[in-house]
């Protein structure tokens, strides 16, 4: 069982009678602990894929199983729990709550945790620890508008880490940052699989970013056109066999 199993996933939008296939038959396996870059031109469907993977959006058709759980059968409340427990998001535009301090922002996912709820004190301690990981222990009481872009994105990464999710989804995390800050943020993200054993998926259109990831998935017009691990394409045979096995399973 892979952490992520996408089988023949479509996500279509209807725009004035015209059907846009943002995802056009995507099948993927991503294992726990992988560091994956998703690349492709603007409009190729990267964000759509991330939103589907993050359970923020649902496929129009196809199957998505996250940690063995088919998410298409879950209702809104269960999806919220899945997001809370297994996914940490890092967005291009940070998406911090402006009126809350860094500490409060980071603690937010713990507030919405159902099972194993922490006391306010424990939540604060966990948030403080996460801020320490991203090197912002001394900025805990600052509000987003008192911080630089790089610092805000660090807060966002701390927030993504605080709930100890299986995977971190980062959609163009350095898109709003200058190149030096981008490198720092990237260093933080690519270190996570090794240091914390978390799966990290980064959407980017910068080749340098992709180079630092073990695996690169290239999208074009909603299709996976390239999938390489450490520079080697995933064996076409294996992929085909996999597809076949899936086809058989469907008949069952």
């Amino acid at each position: 069982m892979s952490l992520i199993e996408l089988d023949d996933v479509y996500r279509t939008y209807e725009m004035g009678g015209e059907v846009v296939r943002a995802l056009d038959g995507v099948s993927l396996r991503i294992e726990a602990g992988e560091l994956v870059a998703i690349i492709g031109q603007s409009g190729s469907g990267k964000s759509t894929l991330m939103n589907v993977l993050g359970c923020l959006d649902s496929p129009t058709s196809g199957r998505y199983a996250l940690a063995g759980q088919d998410v298409s059968v879950l209702d809104d409340e269960q999806l919220a729990h899945v997001r809370n427990r297994t996914i940490g998001f890092v967005f291009q535009s940070f998406h911090l709550l402006p009126r809350q301090t860094a500490l409060e922002n980071v603690a937010l996912p713990l507030l919405y945790r159902r099972e194993g709820r922490l006391t306010p004190k424990a939540r604060e301690a966990a948030a403080q620890e996460a801020l320490g990981i991203v090197g912002l222990a001394d900025r805990a009481l600052h509000r987003p508008n008192e911080m630089s872009g790089g610092q805000r994105q660090r807060v966002a990464i701390a927030r993504a880490l605080v709930g100890k999710p299986h995977m971190i989804l980062a959609d163009e995390p350095t898109g709003n940052l200058d190149s030096k800050t981008s490198l720092e943020i990237l260093d933080l993200l690519v270190a996570l699989p090794e240091e914390q054993g978390r799966t990290v998926i980064i959407v980017t259109h910068e080749p340098e970013v992709a180079e630092r990831c073990h695996r690169t998935i290239r999208l074009l017009d909603g299709k996976v056109v390239e999938d390489t691990r450490d520079g080697t394409p995933l064996p076409e045979k294996a992929a085909a066999a996999e597809r076949e096995a899936r086809g058989a399973a469907h008949v069952d």
């Binding site: 409340e77 919220a80 937010l108 919405y112």
Partner: peptide
């Protein structure tokens, strides 16, 4: 609205 979206992404349920 955006704040609501952020909270939902972080795991807030509709009831929350």
């Amino acid at each position: 609205t955006r704040e609501i979206g952020i909270r939902m992404a972080l795991g807030a349920t509709p009831q929350d």
